[in-house]
Write a protein that binds this DNA or RNA. Sequence first.
RNA 1: GCCGGAGUGGUGGAAUGGCAGACACAAGGGACUUAAAAUCCCUCGGCUGAAUAAGCCGUGCCGGUUCGAGUCCGGCCUCCGGCACCA
Length: 841
Amino acid sequence: MTLYNLPSFMAKVPYSFKEIESKWQHFWEEERSFHATEKSTHPKFYCLVMFPYPSGRIHMGHVRNYAIGDVVARYKRMKGFNVLHPMGWDAFGLPAENAAIQHGVHPSEWTYDNIAFMKNQLKKMGLSYDWSREIATCDPSYYGLEQRLFLKMYEKGLVYKRRSFVNWCSDCETVLANEQVVDGRCWRCESEVTQKDLEQWFFKITAYAEELLQDLEKLKEGWPERVLTMQRNWIGKSMGAEIHFPVVGRSSEFLKIFTTRVDTLYGVTFMSVAPEHPQILEWVKGTSQESSVRVFVEKVLKESQRDRTDLTREKEGVFTGVYCVHPLTQENIPVYVANFVLMEYGTGAVMAVPAHDQRDFEFAKKYNIPVKVVIQPEGEILDSKTMTQAYVEDGLQAHCGSFDGLKNQEAILKISEFLEEKKIGQRVVHYKLRDWGISRQRYWGTPIPVLHCHTCGTVPVPEGDLPVLLPKDVKFTGMGASPLADHESFVRARCPKCGGPARRETDTMDTFVESSWYFARYTCPQCDEPLDVSKVKYWLPVDQYIGGIEHAVLHLLYSRFFSKVLRDLGFLKVDEPFSRLLTQGMVIKDGAKMSKSKGNVVDPDMLIDRYGADTARLFSLFAAPPEKDLDWNDEGVEGSFRFLKRVWTKVNEFLEKKSGENSNVSLDSMEGMTDLEKKLYRKTHSTLKKVSQDIEDAYHFNTAISAIMELVNEIYHFDVEEKPSSRGMAILSEALKMVVILLSPFCPHISEELWEMLGESDSVGQVSWPHWNEKVLQEDSIEIVIQINGKVRSRLQIAPTLSSSELEKKILEDEKIQKFLSGARVKKFIHVPKKLVNVIV
RNA sequence: GCCGGAGUGGUGGAAUGGCAGACACAAGGGACUUAAAAUCCCUCGGCUGAAUAAGCCGUGCCGGUUCGAGUCCGGCCUCCGGCACCA
């Protein structure tokens, strides 16, 4: 059934997109058109889109993401690359478990049902995936191998268990990594995150902090600047010094602090430590300060993560009664517990320099602690009594003993050297990046392959016993501990070392672990080992990765870390997994991100049903450049559909006119062509050039498509005669074929169909991307814009070969120019070849 | 506060320092039709103007560089995104 009519004077064949799309989807499947192998003489190209979580249905964000990836894959194939374009499912995760709790359906069943449904949706989009490489991360054949990788990392000392305060989401009833806490809230459900003291498994991502930072340099060419910046900030390298302050009355004990401003060491007037600082309660034990410190510490610890990191909160603290000795001046320095000092960063203790640090300044003013200026701005004298805020800029050292008069940047080096010499401290580097906490107290994830034995302690599951399978018969109550912890036969185990009773680890891994190596697994999805080194070597790195910006520091950082680990384990040969990254923008409607609660959701199924996949793809690619947000607009979709119908109509009309005739006119020479013919002939080649460059240079699909639209408009203007000459028909034929070829990466179904109708035997996807003929682009006459003092006053048609002096002569003879010049003296001419002449008077 | 990115018609968006607004949507007009839809053609930044004559103004604001600035430089304003007591 169709919703439109074609003009009655032609159009015998309607554009039946449903039949066409299903026909070619079957063709590609039967021909295995997108099946990738390593046996190819062509250079490889690995095009990857971020795999989806099987939430139930695809949304417009997916449609856009996969349409972009498919254009790249199809274009690269036509350019002669051996393309790998795989798809799979990021299939572990909480929604499956929530569905189990709410609807009593098993997470496995829920997940596989969703996969089946969504796979069907993706197939209807005509995406050129090699489905034979499909991965579902919840399949034991995947997560079992992930457990093998876990054990290898364990052997290497890259996995460890530690008891610590961790981010806890009470809604999801599980722990979250730092990266997964956004503004003090859970990244998934947005409920407030609290701190919980738990035993947790960690990946030692900090061991790679420096390399993760350094290698961002290698990505400068291919990654968006802002993603690199976000990762750089997240890793947060700072260089400074650790300094040991002796504690008064405790001969062998020190308070260790970290500072990036050694130059301000002489300005220290107090110390501040975090409420969690392990030594502080010990030091105050039995003193008169003990109770007031205790009260303060307990008060702060009770506050939520959000409140504690609230910048507007007043800086507060309490004196501990403890004093340190200043290592250079030997003065006694009071130690405070302060609510703004973080235990997780540096040493959890800070030397406070109120004159040169705003936080310390505010704190000192509140508690009447002296302010000591030790950095003086050049040409100005700071007075600690009249200062209203800290001076944090550069300057010259003052009241700093032998360092006086030095520029503070030099003093950092000199004082650091001095401290090292005297063994008072040493230079150190700190990172904000923390180790990746991967334990999750949930069922639907990869079981951590470890046993706890009463006598042997923590024992890894032997490789031969892998995979540790998720038991199917579990109860989902949504209450209390993870369903695994309640599963008797899962928990009860034997220690492989001593044979004694052991308890199985019931935590599962963060689902970001699965997505940290799936891109490598796609190269060898059937391999018994985690990875087939030769295949991985052939395909990696991913040449083009495409996905949302929301993973700038989550998935993209974890994957980079995993790649380095896998490299060091001998599986990979590359340092970085993704050479080029394209972060596509969101799909917006009525000024907001599409969401159920806003009621502005466009359903891809409805869209495909009404207009077909080619239209859905075309609009997603045409309405905005890929990296920008796309404003969804129903009338715009209509416009894209109209365009495809225009192409369809014109090809059919052409075939009707051509029928019977079979003239083969050579288009080698443009001699004898009419102006109209030349115009279309040139447009055909200039469009090829523009589309090629737009796709190649920067994935400017929107302008590439608009260029094709221009060519189609030109064809409509050309085809005015009832019976064009055979040369005209040849030119028209070439133009139409060009439209079909250029359109094929964007709208593959209609392109295949039209290609076949035009009498071509190969699939249009197998055609080599054509080369444009630069000679054809040479115009017989070009238009030159004539400006007077920068204002457009006239235009001249000239031969491209005309010399500058002849052109100047012509300009001065021009009627309009003469009128504007009205006798004024011409000072000079500025020539922009083949474009413009500016006459200065 | 710091670091990115962006401000262009009614709208989405185009423009290696060289004709601002390609392409498309919406709007308006015309052709076809008994009529409507569809289709095809035309107009479409603002102002003055009868005008498809001519001219002036116009890319967030102010200034600069240049023969020439949406584009480069300096200073602001607004919006979006990220980071943020990181010592």
